[in-house]
Design a binder for these strands. Sequence first.
DNA 1: GTCTATAGGCAGATAGAC
DNA 2: GTCTATCTGCCTATAGAC
Lengths: 198, 198
Amino acid sequence: MNRTRGRTASGETASAVLDIAERLVQTRGFNSFSYADVASELSVTKASLHYHFPSKAELGEALIDRYTERFAVALAEIEASERDAGKRLDAYVGLYADVLQNERMCLCGMLAAEYETLPGPMRAAIVRFFELNEAWLAGVLTEGRRGRGLSYAGSPRETARGIVGGLEGWMLVARAHGDLARFRPTARRLVANLAGVA
Amino acid sequence: MNRTRGRTASGETASAVLDIAERLVQTRGFNSFSYADVASELSVTKASLHYHFPSKAELGEALIDRYTERFAVALAEIEASERDAGKRLDAYVGLYADVLQNERMCLCGMLAAEYETLPGPMRAAIVRFFELNEAWLAGVLTEGRRGRGLSYAGSPRETARGIVGGLEGWMLVARAHGDLARFRPTARRLVANLAGVA
DNA sequence: GTCTATAGGCAGATAGAC
DNA sequence: GTCTATCTGCCTATAGAC
């Protein structure tokens, strides 16, 4: 039976390609992995990959879109399970800590470093990822300040960007230091400082 | 007259090569520029570059070493010109803001993203850069707390790493947002939050 | 959907003339 | 120190058989 494929390829093979490519981008970067890398891991040929993702740029877009969608789901789950703003921030930090624990960078943090070399559609998708995160955090920060749990200087938006960028940079440096274990508690404290957790 | 060249090449051409390669790494990344890029800008051939820097890895090492040395000089200048801990932190933020104003990432922040793909000697040099920065900041933070100008939770070392990583990440995201202008004041405020500036 | 085969280009690097 | 010429290998991508 043949499934209908969407624009971004939704079959099982395509999904396996995305899984492998995602890990490679998160560890090595978009410009430092090749179709050959993915093909050998999947035990197929490079030509097969081009059937699912005609160009590397389209593969890149699909990667970011899927990653962003998963993040959106995770954010919704945090909102459903935590009511307190401080605890929501802790859970948010946990998303990044889990990524680093897998010895990976955030996909979009990695791509942000390569931003200048990427095609327009990928750039736009990266900005959307950050926009989603900042908007969600700004909401948490606004509510938290109203409820007196948080007391930060500056706007919620600016503070939200500080948290997102901070997490990206702390991951980056922690990975170079080979210091994965301390990330979670340290990042929690730093975020608490930025957000003025009571 | 022929100058004696050191291990890392100290002639004028070598210096021009480093200038061009540095900018390319800071904007595009180490794996996204080539000897051909540098050669065409310098109007020489690729083969000439290999005379000064036999391998790309050696060029990379020389880049990091020079960058780190310049940073060390800048840190010493800050210590000489500012006595107050808060002002020293502001001046430190200024170093990063100046880099971003030139539409560049921090050299070592960029390389940290590519860390997994880099040869051992380059990795070690990157870690030395972060180590230098964290040690210097830890000193400022220790003094600032003793003098009651600063009041942060956690150790000076951890807070120092928070500042370094934070600046790297804020640069990364600001560049993707095309938001160079707001970086300086925002980063100042965020660092002040992390360090507990009175 | 996956394959073989190949195109066309660019990468880092070297040999040897000048 | 810089050049021309060249090597080897990898890259993204395509054509066309099965």
